[in-house]
């Protein structure tokens, strides 16, 4: 009986969480559609959440692109298909590495920051203070972060795409003596522009996930400093899991037939 009880309670919790997140997202979207966006706050958040993430995105994308090229280029040359390395690296960068890597890295850095900031505001009564002033925490806090991430994550993804391809190209040239021209020609022949755009669609969805999960976890914080820590961890773990799930779903929907 206890197992059944636990399963039942767990199911209720999952649906309650999903309902809460959906409600928060719907509330935020309503404000966005009515153009009730605080521009200055959104720009500040774009800088804090997006621009300040460029270093970490640069490093992770560069080294991942380099590793991918390192492991594929030498073997490709041995099999006489070195001219395909550029295509392989850019194909994987635009479809998977760029959107996924930048989303996971930003979820770790920014999702945690959103949850921690809003969680601290809950425990210090700042959220109640906003409500008591007749202001909506969704409009004041969630919408700027959501809009900022929806704009900045695709930009970071473009940056990650370029950096990983350049890193891969450099390694392919050094270790497998694949010329830059050959690499670029291969990349252009294999990678349609539409795939780059589809990668950006993914990153847009990931941006929504990171912002909303971070905000929801933060706003649900209970119990002081320990609660803030729990909310922060929960935001990162949940965002990353959802990013992987949605990556599969979006890949299926966007690239299912290609």
């Amino acid at each position: 009986m206890k197992v059944l009880e636990d399963v039942g309670r767990g199911t209720v919790d999952v649906f309650s969480y999903a309902g809460g997140v959906a409600e928060l997202l719907a509330d935020a979207v309503r404000f966005i559609l009515r153009l009730r966006i605080r521009v200055r706050e959104t720009m500040d958040q774009a800088y804090l959440l997006g621009v300040q993430s460029w270093t970490i995105v640069l490093l992770t994308s560069l080294f991942t692109g380099m590793v991918f090229s390192l492991e594929s280029a030498v073997q490709a040359v041995q099999y006489g298909v070195g001219n395909l390395v550029g295509g392989a690296v850019s194909f994987s960068a635009a479809r998977e590495l760029g959107p996924m890597l930048s989303a996971v890295v930003v979820a770790g850095r920014t999702g945690a920051a959103i949850a921690a900031e809003l969680g601290s505001m809950v425990v210090t009564e700042q959220i109640e203070a906003l409500q008591s002033l007749g202001l909506s925490p969704t409009r004041m806090l969630v919408v700027p972060r959501l809009v900022a991430l929806v704009i900045m994550l695709p930009l970071l993804t473009i940056f990650a795409d370029i950096v990983s391809i350049v890193g891969g190209m450099w390694v392919a040239n050094i270790y497998a003596h694949i010329s830059t021209e050959s690499f670029i020609t291969s990349a252009r022949s294999v990678l349609p522009f539409g795939d780059v755009l589809k990668g950006l669609v993914k990153s847009l969805v990931f941006g929504v996930i990171i912002a909303i999960i971070g905000a929801y976890q933060g706003l649900q914080t209970r119990g002081g400093a320990a609660g803030v820590g729990k909310a922060t961890t929960g935001a990162v773990v949940t965002s990353i899991i959802l990013i992987f799930i949605f990556n599969f779903l979006l890949s299926y929907l966007l690239y299912g037939n290609s």
Partner: peptide, 13 residues
């Protein structure tokens, strides 16, 4: 709430 001011215990600035 716009017609009611609230001064919080820890100010909540």
């Amino acid at each position: 709430r716009r017609s009611i001011g609230f001064a919080f215990q820890f100010s909540a600035l």
